[in-house]
Design a protein around this nucleic acid. Structure first.
Length: 651
DNA sequence: GAGTAGAGCGCC
DNA sequence: AAAGGGCGCTCTACTC
């Protein structure tokens, strides 16, 4: 595909506090503003200082009316400012592109011992200039975004125009580095830019009451556990139980418990939750230590984290910072803070007032992607007043993509409506009848539910090449299964025998997806998703990095396609949302969250359930899939109170 | 005092 | 023989 008609766009911003320049929602309270706006086309630039809303609207309309793409660098940021100043309608009409993301699509990721792993590359425009056009990078040296005098403002405008110009040039350059299917994947991904921009402005409503209650509860719990420990073991007085070395001494030297686990890097005796889990069978105090650490960590990260963010933002909302295409498999990640450069003024006796700058983290958001699954944690996150929260979750997403990738007939057949892959696997392991197990699980039979849980563990854990040791620990601690390594070893043999298309026949390294996928990637030098997104794999397949490279080869099509599927769902959702007055709210990899006005939420959810369960994979990616990818729909008044759509009733 | 490494752990 | 992947956040210990 040739490079389509595209204009470059860039905004500069400032705020009452310098960090507000990076916080588009400050435009609402006039404590942040757009200081310059520039467009670029055909090697020419057009820029204005202190643009009026009308002049910004004119810029967007220029792109809309000529059906041109509008490209920025980290475009969601600029789009968010435009939404924040009142141009939401235009922003959603524009066809956006992002040069930074095109770079990510095009870039070769070196891997392997021959190519030393580089420090994580910065994907800033400045880095791109320095890497590709160092002689032209001078305009980037101007950094006084809070400028007010005329000379500085001229320099600011110059920088702004050059940003727009080079952003456009890079877009064309990176576009040309992509194969046709990579370009299509990038275009579908770019459709989510306005939706992500809108959430940057809106944020998530968070309940300070729920956060405070959680904080109080966890604080009391930690205090009570500590008291219980202190009563039986006065020697913990003065020991920092959050310190691994100090805890190590306590457990293994003072209490003389046996060492069973070691840190991977340093070989020091481990004090992690798996070690404490096993030690608890010998000494109940290990269990108390585990609970104490959890309570303290959870309080800080979730309860206090929310309260801090609410206080910083000051408008009842938290703003976790979404990053599109943040992982090499394309997944979105969220950060809880913004980096800000603030000015500090120190007064000393010798020198009087001394001004300097320092980098700090400001708590604009929360650790959304790590949010604990419990109700009392998830209740903190709510839809805005008058709205309901909905979730659409791809059912068994990775299992299904593995079924397609491997072509395993049993796996594929278990993806048909009415089948239950976890019950199937559970029945194989427990050597009982599959259909009868499904029926007994439905009837609430406890041993049957246990067998299904075991099947679920196997289905989810054995798709990738997990060791017996790791799987045993995981089964015991995370699934609370009373199993040993022997049982896990046998269950892996049963798994392989059940799905020979995945790992090949038991005790063999050939004949399945794992082996054939590794061979394919060795041959091609890259791995590919079903949408055509790629990662380079050109290191030394025989050396020290063989295992991680093979793992990437196996993992990438599964996890990466899950990412592409999410972008496709967001693209389809974007077209449907306005019909119901709905908005994208946030995402959790295989789950998408939207808000709808209360009176439209149920109808909208039915439509979304249907549409997201039948995404246009063939039209978008050019592939015909042998199975469906249904979503489960949930709806409720908070993240912690979601229920199945068909069970929900407001009345 | 600032920055970093390591350990640990939350989610998918 | 050994062997999931992907992240971001918090705390301590340590270095410059």
């Amino acid at each position: 595909m040739i490079f389509p008609l595209t204009f470059g766009l860039d905004l500069e911003t400032a705020g009452v506090k310098s960090e507000y320049a990076l916080q588009p929602f400050r435009a609402g309270s006039k404590s942040g503003r757009i200081t310059a706006a520039s467009m670029a086309a055909n090697g020419k630039t057009f820029g204005v200082l202190n643009p009026s809303i009308e002049s910004l609207r004119t810029m967007l309309n220029a792109a809309i009316q000529s059906d041109a793409y509008l490209v920025g660098w980290n475009t969601a940021f600029d789009a968010a400012w435009l939404i924040a100043v009142g141009l939401e309608q235009e922003v959603f009409q524009v066809k956006w592109l992002d040069s930074m993301l095109l770079w990510r699509h095009a870039v070769v990721e070196p891997e392997g011992e021959d190519v030393p792993r580089q420090k994580r590359k910065s994907y800033s425009l400045e880095s791109a200039m320095k890497e590709f056009y160092p002689d032209d990078a001078e305009f980037k040296e101007f950094k006084d975004f809070q400028a007010t005098d005329d000379t500085s403002l001229d320099l600011l405008l110059h920088r702004n125009e050059m940003d727009a110009l080079w952003t456009l040039r890079f877009a064309e350059k990176f576009w040309g580095m992509l194969e046709g299917r990579q370009q299509v994947a990038a275009l579908i991904e770019a459709r989510c830019i306005p939706s992500m921009a809108k959430t940057k402005v809106m944020g998530l409503k968070a309940s300070p009451t729920a956060a405070q209650e959680l904080s109080d509860r966890l604080e009391a719990e930690a205090a009570s556990i500590y008291k219980e420990l202190l009563d039986t073991s006065p020697e913990i007085e003065g020991v920092n139980l959050a310190s691994s070395p100090q805890l190590q001494t306590l457990l293994y030297d003072v209490w003389k418990l046996p060492v069973d686990r070691f840190s991977k890097k340093t070989g020091a005796p481990s004090t992690d939750k798996y070690a404490l889990f096993d030690l608890a069978f010998l000494d109940p105090r290990a269990s108390l230590l585990k609970k104490l650490r959890e309570a303290k960590n959870n309080r800080k990260k979730y309860a206090i984290g929310t309260l801090n963010s609410l206080e910083y933002n000051g408008d009842g909302h938290v703003r976790p910072q979404a990053k599109i295409f943040s992982t090499y498999t394309s997944r979105i990640t969220y950060g809880s803070s913004d980096k800000a450069t603030i000015e500090v003024v120190k007064t000393t006796k010798a020198k009087g007032e001394v001004r300097s700058t320092k980098k700090v983290e400001v708590p604009v958001g929360i650790a959304l992607h790590q949010w604990k699954r419990g109700k009392e944690y998830r209740r903190i996150i709510q839809p805005p007043p008058g709205y309901l929260l909905t979730e659409f979750d791809f059912a068994g997403q990775e299992f299904r993509w593995m079924a397609v990738a491997s072509g395993d007939e049993t796996m594929l057949s278990l993806c048909a409506p009415g089948e239950d892959a976890h019950s199937y696997m559970g029945a194989q392991i427990a050597q009982r009848d599959y259909r009868e197990l499904i029926k007994m699980v439905k009837d609430g039979d406890a041993p049957a539910a246990n067998d299904r849980k075991c099947g679920k563990f196997c289905n989810l854990s054995y798709q990738f090449r997990v060791s017996v040791k790791t799987a045993t620990v995981k089964a015991r601690v995370e699934y609370e299964m009373d199993v040993d390594e022997n049982f896990i070893r046998q269950s892996q043999v049963i798994y392989k025998g059940s799905y020979p298309g995945v790992g090949g026949q038991p005790y063999q390294r050939t004949g399945g997806y794992w082996a054939s996928q590794i061979e394919k990637c060795k041959r091609l030098g890259y791995a590919e998703t079903f949408a055509g997104r790629r990662v380079q794999l050109t290191g030394n397949w025989a050396g020290r990095d063989a295992w991680p490279m093979e793992s990437t080869a196996i993992n990438y099509p599964i996890q990466g396609t899950g990412g592409d599927q999410k972008y496709l769902a967001l693209a389809i959702a974007r077209n449907l949302l306005p019909q119901f007055g709905g908005y994208f709210y946030y995402e959790l990899h295989d789950g998408l969250f939207f808000i709808f006005p209360e009176d439209k939420a149920e109808v909208a959810s039915q439509v979304f359930l249907t549409e997201l369960s039948s995404l246009p994979y063939e039209k978008a990616w050019g592939v015909k899939l042998p199975i469906q990818f249904p979503v489960d729909a949930k709806i409720g008044v908070s993240w912690g109170d979601l229920m199945d759509l068909n069970k929900f009733s407001l009345r």
